[in-house]
Nucleic acid binder design. Structure first.
Length: 428
RNA sequence: GCGGAUAUAGUUCAGCGGUAGAACACCGGUCUGUGGCACCGGCUGUCGUGGGUUCGAAUCCCACUAUCCGCCCCA
């Protein structure tokens, strides 16, 4: 048997309805905040990711699905291609390629779709996973650099979580400063670690060399006191970054979105600057991050584009669904059809089909049975579809042009003329 | 990439060297136009894959693969 490959999966009903639900809520929230959809390719030039996400990150270093696309003609060049591991790089590439900033206005773009990373699969972690994300990007003159945009994006996410019905979330907030601050902070960290790293865990000893920021992410209890004493990023922010962050917090306070400052929240993509954030949830096991994002001033320039500061986020759709399912209350998906048409007796399929067509045209969602079923079987089949009513189409009904409509739950049955059926069944 | 656990019917699982089972689910009948109950009957498997040990392997051994839980990383 051929099976879905490692880390990929089929999303079947009824779970697929939950995915649709979250997607629909997201589209509605995006509409309220004036975001429009962008769809970028699922694979891109490998360099797009190595230059934006960062050559030294885990994502680029070991998790990408990359292949060499061979030249098939003299005029073609061989090219290294990669399945997108995230979508911000693709959106910024499209922004540059189509000159979206040329008219001077702010771009507010959202996307939904699969992303690919070659990690070991686990609960809430797949090799093909689904993200919904958005970016606010544009020339600085359009206000793209304003802390008001950071706060608006974060507030929008709180709104989305509320609408979807996910309750037990925590917002972690930090500022990692601009490129300049980060350099100084990294040096300071290295210097401070030099003396104490000997007593820390093996992972931290490695991190101290490769990426000192990651030490802050360590979860080994014995290391915590040491980490507490390390220099803090907030002490290394320059004045503009400090003011920017203060303004973000001020607005969040004003709109009543609660957050926890977490100076140790370090994100794994190199392009982040200033504001970074993460929403976490307890029902997700080891993969506690529901969504994450931050500002990426400088990313456009890294990709050869104009100056175009921006802020964005990506949320894990798979994890949203897991969180919904872990909060038993939330995951209510209503039944799809309102009625089940039960043709009764030989020759009734045609009459039932005609009636079903009329009713569906009037907006009634229907399931259609078969004339070979006995009534008993039709009722059972109707119940399984979740339909509210069964409409019996037998010889008597067709002759009289009135139909027996039975409420499945109460057992109550009425005779309804054809002209009023749609209304009874909840159509137009 | 590292550590641990698991893999038998559609599902949950039992069987732990001697003819592959239970429950639930599903299908049919009792019951040809009014179900959900009850009773009766029935179906379903390369026992994850490949090797090995043995007269004989679902069972013991080895390798592989997949899933789950951690680590790592991130959404």
């Amino acid at each position: 048997m051929i099976k879905a490959v490692r880390g990929t999966r089929d999303i079947l009903p009824p779970d697929s309805a939950l995915f649709q639900f979250v997607e629909a809520q997201a589209r509605e929230v995006f509409r309220l905040y004036n975001f429009q959809e962008v769809r970028t390719p699922i694979f891109e030039d490998t360099q797009l990711f190595s230059r934006s996400v960062g050559e030294e990150t885990d994502i680029v270093g070991k998790e990408m699905f990359t292949w060499e696309d061979k030249a098939r003609a003299q005029s073609e060049k061989a090219q290294s291609l990669t399945l997108r591991p995230e979508n911000t790089a693709g959106v910024v590439r499209a922004y540059i390629e189509h000159g979206l900033g040329d008219k001077g206005q702010l771009q507010k773009l959202y996307y939904m779709g699969p992303q690919f990373r070659r990690e070991r699969p686990q609960k809430g972690r797949y090799r093909q996973f689904y993200q919904i994300g958005a970016e606010v990007i544009g020339p600085a003159s359009a206000g793209s650099e304003s802390p008001a945009r950071d706060a608006e994006v974060i507030e929008m996410l709180a709104m989305l979580l509320d609408r979807v019905g996910i309750k037990g979330w925590t917002l972690l907030l930090n500022s990692v400063g601009c490129a300049n601050d980060r350099g100084k902070y990294n040096e300071a960290l290295r210097a401070a670690l030099k003396d104490v790293v000997g007593q820390m865990c093996a992972d931290c000893q490695r991190r101290a060399e490769t990426n000192p920021l990651r030490v802050l992410d360590c979860k080994v209890p014995e290391d915590q006191p040491t980490i507490e004493k390390l220099p803090k990023i907030s002490e290394y922010l320059d004045e503009p970054c400090r003011e920017n962050f203060a303004e973000v917090k001020k607005i969040l306070d004003a709109v009543g979105v609660k957050y926890e400052l977490n100076e140790r929240m370090v994100r794994g993509l190199d392009y982040y600057t200033r504001t970074t954030f993460e929403f976490t949830h307890g029902g997700l096991g080891a993969q506690s991050a529901l969504l994450g994002g931050g500002r990426y001033d400088g990313l456009s320039e890294m990709l050869g584009g104009p100056k175009a500061p921006g802020i964005g986020f990506a949320l894990g759709l798979d994890r949203f669904v897991l969180a919904l399912q872990s909060e038993a209350s939330g995951a209510q998906v209503q039944s799809a059809v309102s009625a089940y048409i039960a043709p009764l007796g030989a020759g009734m399929n045609a009459a039932a089909a005609k009636l079903a067509r009329e009713l569906r045209a009037q907006g009634v969602a229907l399931e259609l049975g078969d004339e070979s079923f006995r009534l008993k079987k039709s009722f059972e089949a109707a119940e399984r579809t979740g339909a509210k009513f069964v409409v019996i189409v037998g010889e008597n009904e067709v002759k009289a042009d009135t139909f027996a409509v039975k409420d499945i739950k109460s057992g109550e049955q009425k005779t309804i003329p054809r002209s009023e059926l749609a209304k009874t069944l909840g159509g137009r």
